[in-house]
Design a protein around this nucleic acid. Structure first.
Length: 241
DNA sequence: TAGGCCATCTGGTCCT
DNA sequence: AGGACCAGATGGCCTA
């Protein structure tokens, strides 16, 4: 970081570095105590630095402390950022169909699955001829029509989700909210495309985990999938969307 | 023990 | 100057 090498800061003494020696070590005002300029300021930066305003010099100790404090703050920010991302990822997990006994999808699995799932749904909508379209995910059925969406399940876990009502149908927004998370008891009940599935326009569209469920389109035939190339296969892999 | 996954640290870049 | 974002490095944990 080039800024880390600034020996002087705007407005004088730096905030973060002002702790024990909150002031300013006068002894380091003398040029003879400064770290060689060549080391701290490459020629180009030195020239640029001359244009900047009047700044107060910092001792090497202060510079080090400043760097360390900035690093600590940056680490905190990064940690928080990653936690935020993980929270968002968790919400995404909860919005995807899953099995109760399933282990948690990994990060990459979640992202791939979500991508494929959304893509499949968009394909379903795109191929709509105006009538109601049904998407089966296991024993959960998502009916999409002009009057709204309805999610039904043959199991009691999901039942009929009615988030908003449009006409005679109970409708829910899609993707369904977390509390209406799909819960299917048996893997065998899931509809799969097997090798006839379609794949979204994504470079790494194949999913390598058996937990990647299929979205089945019973009313509209989807085009055959593009060939998979250069994708390693694991024993537990199977074709997904 | 190797490999996968993950959290965290780190330095670079870009933007405000 | 500082924050956001990113990608690489690293070490810990877990499982086959």
């Amino acid at each position: 970081m080039s800024s880390e090498y600034s020996f002087c800061s705007e407005g004088g003494f730096d905030e973060l570095s002002s702790s024990s020696d909150s002031g300013f070590d006068v002894s380091f005002e003398s040029p003879k105590h400064e770290v060689p300029t060549d080391t701290l300021f490459p020629p180009a930066k030195e020239e640029k630095r001359k244009k900047t305003r009047n700044t107060r010099c910092k001792s090497p100790t202060q510079v080090l402390r400043l760097k360390r404090n900035r690093r600590i703050k940056a680490n905190d920010r990064e940690r928080h950022r990653m936690h935020t991302l993980n929270d968002a990822l968790e919400r995404l997990r909860m919005a995807l169909p899953t099995f109760p006994e399933d282990t948690k999808l990994t990060k990459i699995e979640t992202l791939r699955f979500a991508h494929n799932y959304i893509w499949a749904l968009s394909q379903t909508l795109g191929n709509s001829d105006g009538g109601e379209i049904t998407v089966n995910v296991g024993n959960v059925t998502v009916s999409i029509s002009e009057n709204g969406n309805m999610i039904t399940s043959s199991t009691g876990s999901c039942a009929v989700a009615a988030q908003k009502r449009l006409g005679p149908q109970h409708t829910v927004g899609f993707p369904y909210p977390p509390q209406e998370r799909f819960v299917a008891p048996e893997w065998q009940e899931y509809d799969c495309y097997s090798d006839q599935s379609v794949s979204p326009p994504m470079q790494y569209q194949p999913c390598y985990d058996q937990r990647m469920y299929q979205v089945h389109r019973p009313q509209h035939q989807l085009p055959p999938p593009p060939p998979h190339h250069h994708m390693p296969h694991h024993n537990n892999m199977y074709q997904c969307l």
